[in-house]
């Protein structure tokens, strides 16, 4: 199947639109005949990361690319960066604002969830911005039979 590549913009505090990347990617993965479980895995990872950009950063972008072997997703934001990546990866650790918590987020489960659903995850951060890359392997079993 043809390769897919799409870039999305994510605005700070735009909670109402968080989930757009996940739902459009879900549609594309379904169209390609991938299984419900595979689609769920990828969309959970994307949704969590989208929420992170919305509630923690000054805004950013997301690029989703899909070929026959992998789904690659890269989120880049414009800061302010993660102070301690090890803490951020600890389940339950949270620096979320009252605003995020009121909206049902900020439980400290975002990055741990992303780590557990993705096949590879890379997270780098400085004050200028955070980059999160996640990779999902597509195998024969990933397709509906």
């Amino acid at each position: 199947m043809e390769n897919y590549c799409k870039e999305f913009k994510i605005q700070k505090n735009d909670i109402g639109n968080a989930g757009t990347v996940a739902s459009l990617t879900k549609r594309e993965l379904k169209r390609r005949g991938l299984t419900k479980d595979f689609v769920k895995t990828v969309t959970i990872g994307i949704y969590e990361a989208e929420i992170n950009v919305v509630i923690h950063s000054y805004g950013g972008t997301c690029v989703v690319s899909i070929d026959d072997e992998f789904v690659n997703v890269t989120f880049k934001d414009n800061g302010p960066g993660i102070e301690c990546i090890d803490s951020a990866l600890t389940p339950g650790f949270s620096t979320a604002s009252h605003y995020a918590i009121e909206n049902g987020f900020g439980a400290g489960m975002g990055l741990p969830n992303i780590k557990s659903v993705s096949d590879e995850m890379e997270l780098t951060s400085s004050k200028e911005g955070t980059t999160l890359h996640m990779k999902f392997n597509i195998s024969g079993d990933s397709y509906e039979s």
């Binding site: 909670i15 987020f105 439980a107 489960m109």
Partner: peptide
């Protein structure tokens, strides 16, 4: 919502007091 996302099964019904669009 992160707990829902990480743990709820397909076809399940969610019971919540969280009343927002997400």
């Amino acid at each position: 919502l992160s707990h829902v996302m990480g743990n709820a099964a397909e076809g399940s019904t969610l019971i919540t007091v969280l009343n927002n669009i997400n």
